[in-house]
Design a binder for these strands. Structure first.
Lengths: 336, 336
DNA sequence: CAAAGTTGATATAACGTTATACCTAGAGTC
DNA sequence: GACTCTAGGTATAACGTTATATCAACTTTG
C-alpha cells in the first residue's frame, strides 16, 4: 500500500550501495564529488525523506517534543503553544499537540501514545487528580517532562508555573484599595490546585484587611458558564461589589451578565480577570486583569525542556513567573 | 540516557523468550495459562509500553493521524479538532496537531516532519500559494491526505469544504431583503481562494439585484484588525449600511468599532458574520451569522480519512457542507 | 618493486518488534 | 516400540537506517 521511497531506491537509482547513499545524505564519510552529485540528484528526484522511525531507532532520541494541554480552544494556551513552537522549531524540533480535555482516561491514552511513539520530551499540564500510577509510568520510561501551570503531586519533574497566590493578592488588594469590601472570588472549579493557590491569595488579603468571610463562586472556564454563574451569584448576593476572577473568559462572561442586569462593570461592580487575553482589552468596558505573557511563558517552557534534554542529571527545577496588574475600565472606586 | 523497558526485559523477568512475550501481549499463538500470567505480570511491573517505531516498522502503518491547520488559536478550528479527535480516538488512532501559521516554510517543515515520522494520514488546510512541489512530495510518499476548507490547486486529494458561495449568497440576500443596497464584503486577505469563492457569492447577489459596484475591504482574521479596518472603511465610505463578513471574529471587531463611532450594529449598519463561534451569540448586540457546525465538520473529516485509509483505491471525493443563516440582532431593516 | 598510505566505496551489525518456521517433549495410535 | 500428532515454546528474518569495520584499487615512498 504505502510505498514510500527508501534509501535503497535512492542508492539503486544512483548506482551505489545504501551505505554510500546514507553517507552522502548525512554528509559523513569520504565520497567523491561525482557520486555525491549522483546520489543527491536521485534523492531529489524521488523526493526522498528519511524514515524517522528507522533513524531514531538506530541512532538515539527523536527530535520531537509533545505537549499535552487541557483545551486547545483556550486562546491563552494557543499563545503558549506559539511560544514553545517558535523556539523549539528553530532548534530543529517538531512540536505536536494533544488535547486531554482535562479527562483522566484521555490523558492516560495520550501519555501512552506518547511513549509508544517515543517522543523526545513532554510539556504537560497534568489533569486534576492524576494518580500516582501515571508518575510510575513516566519514570519507568525516563521521559523528560516539564509540567506546566499545574504541579503534579506525585512526580518530581521540572515545572513552570505562575505566581498564582501573589498575583491574586495583588488583584484583591487592588479592589480593596478602591474601597471595596464585599469581594467574591469568581470562577474555576472546586478542588483544582491552581485555583486553591489563588484562593489562598484572595483570603490572605481579605483577612489582612478584616473583611468578613470569603465568598467563593464556581464557574467552568467558558464565557457562557461565567454569565450564568454571575446571574446566580447576583440573585443570592446582590450586595457584592467586587469580583476577583479565575480567568478573563469567565470575567467577560460575568460582565456580560451584569449588563443584562442593567449593571455597569467598573461602576456598580468592579471586576478583575486573569491572563490578559486579547478580548480583555477589546471588550466594552475593557477588562482589568492580571497579565501573564503567554508567548514568553512558552519560550520559558521550551528553554526548560531543552535544558533537561541536554543535561538529564541536573536537579529538578521549578520556575514561577509573575503576573502584572493591568487596570482598565472594569475596576473603579466604590460608589458611596 | 533514556532507557525504557523493552520486550527483552519483560521476557527476562518472566523467564521466557522475547518471541513468547510478544505473543502473550499480542494475544496470538499458543501459550499456556501459566506463562501467560507470568508475562503479563512482568509487563505490568515494568510499565512496559511497546515502542511504536519498531512495531510500525515491522508490521505496517502507524495509527496516528496528523492535522496541519492555520491557527490553533481560532476557536472554530479548535472545535473541528475536537470533532476529529473524538471519532478517531474511538477507533484507536492518535491525533496530533501542527500549527502552520499559514507560513509556507513552516508548512513545508511540518509536512516533511510528518513524512519523516510516518504518520498514517494527514488532515490538512493548505497554506495559500502552496507550490506544485508540495503535491509531488505528498504523492511520492503516497500519504493519505484530506484537504480541508481550502482546496489545493495542484493535488488530487479528498476534500471537505464549506459551500462558501452559496452561504454568502444567502447572507447577502438576507441584507438585501432587509432593504440594504450599499453593502460591502468585509474581512479576509487578498488572493485567498476561499474568500474569492465567497466574494463571488456576494457579487452574484449584488449584480442580480442591480446594486452598484462591489466594495471589498480587507482585514486580517483577528478582532483588533477587524476593528481598525472598520474605522478605516467608515471614514472612506460612510454611506455603507450593510456588511457581509468573512468571519465572526472580524465581524465582532467591526461591531466594536461601530460602537466606538456611536453607531448601533443592526440599526445603523447591519452586520452578518460567518462560522457562528460561541462569542457570536453572546456579544451585545448578538451577531447574525452563517453557522457551520465545526464539530460535525470534524466528524466528517475523520470519516473521510478513515475511508481513504481503508480503501486507498477509491476515486477522489469532495464533500461540501452547507452553512445556515442565523439571524440575530446585528441585522435589521434599513431605516428610511 | 615491495611496503605503506590514501581514497572511495561496500558489507555488516544493530536498534525493538512481530510473523514464520522450526523444534522438543509428551500423548495417542497401531 | 516406532509412528504420528499436538501443545507449548523458541530461533530467526525482516522492517529502514547508520556507524563501524573492511576491502579494493591506486599512489606514494624508500
Amino acid at each position: 500500500m504505502r510505498n514510500r521511497p527508501k534509501l535503497q531506491d535512492v542508492a539503486n537509482r544512483a548506482g551505489v550501495s545504501v551505505a554510500t547513499a546514507s553517507q552522502v545524505l548525512r554528509g559523513t564519510g569520504r565520497i567523491s564529488e561525482n557520486t555525491r552529485k549522483r546520489v543527491q540528484e536521485a534523492a531529489q528526484k524521488l523526493h526522498y525523506v528519511p524514515d524517522d522511525r528507522a533513524v531514531s531507532m538506530r541512532s538515539g532520541a527523536k527530535k520531537e517534543i509533545g505537549m499535552i494541554i487541557q483545551r486547545i480552544a483556550n486562546p491563552f494556551n494557543a499563545e503558549v503553544i506559539s511560544g514553545v513552537s517558535d523556539l523549539l522549531e528553530s532548534k530543529g524540533y517538531l512540536v505536536s499537540i494533544l488535547d486531554s480535555q482535562d479527562d483522566l482516561d484521555r490523558q492516560r491514552r495520550n501519555l501512552e501514545a506518547f511513549i509508544r511513539n517515543s517522543r523526545g520530551g513532554l510539556i504537560w499540564v497534568p489533569s486534576q487528580d492524576t494518580p500516582q500510577s501515571v508518575a510510575d509510568l513516566l519514570h519507568a520510561h525516563q521521559l523528560p517532562v516539564v509540567t506546566f501551570l499545574r504541579k503534579f503531586a506525585f512526580g518530581t519533574f521540572d515545572h513552570v508555573g505562575i505566581e498564582n497566590r501573589r498575583a491574586i493578592e495583588t488583584a484583591t488588594q487592588h479592589l480593596v484599595s478602591l474601597g471595596h469590601s464585599k469581594i467574591a472570588y469568581f470562577g474555576g472549579e472546586a478542588d483544582v490546585d491552581v485555583r486553591q493557590e489563588r484562593i489562598r491569595g484572595y483570603t490572605n488579603i481579605m483577612k489582612a484587611n478584616g473583611l468578613g468571610a470569603p465568598i467563593i463562586w464556581d464557574a467552568a472556564d467558558d464565557k457562557l458558564a461565567g454569565m450564568n454563574a454571575m446571574l446566580a451569584l447576583h440573585k443570592e448576593r446582590p450586595d457584592i461589589t467586587g469580583l476577583v476572577c479565575n480567568g478573563d473568559v469567565v470575567a467577560l462572561g460575568a460582565c456580560h451578565a451584569m449588563q443584562k442586569l442593567g449593571l455597569l462593570p467598573g461602576q456598580d461592580i468592579s471586576v478583575i480577570g486573569f491572563d490578559d487575553i486579547q478580548d480583555a482589552g477589546l471588550a466594552t468596558p475593557s477588562l482589568s486583569t492580571m497579565a501573564v505573557r503567554p508567548y514568553q511563558l512558552g519560550h520559558l517552557l521550551a528553554q526548560t525542556i531543552l535544558t533537561r534534554l541536554n543535561e538529564p542529571n541536573l536537579p529538578v527545577n521549578s520556575t514561577y513567573i509573575a503576573a502584572t496588574l493591568v487596570a482598565r475600565e472594569t475596576t473603579g472606586k466604590l460608589l458611596a
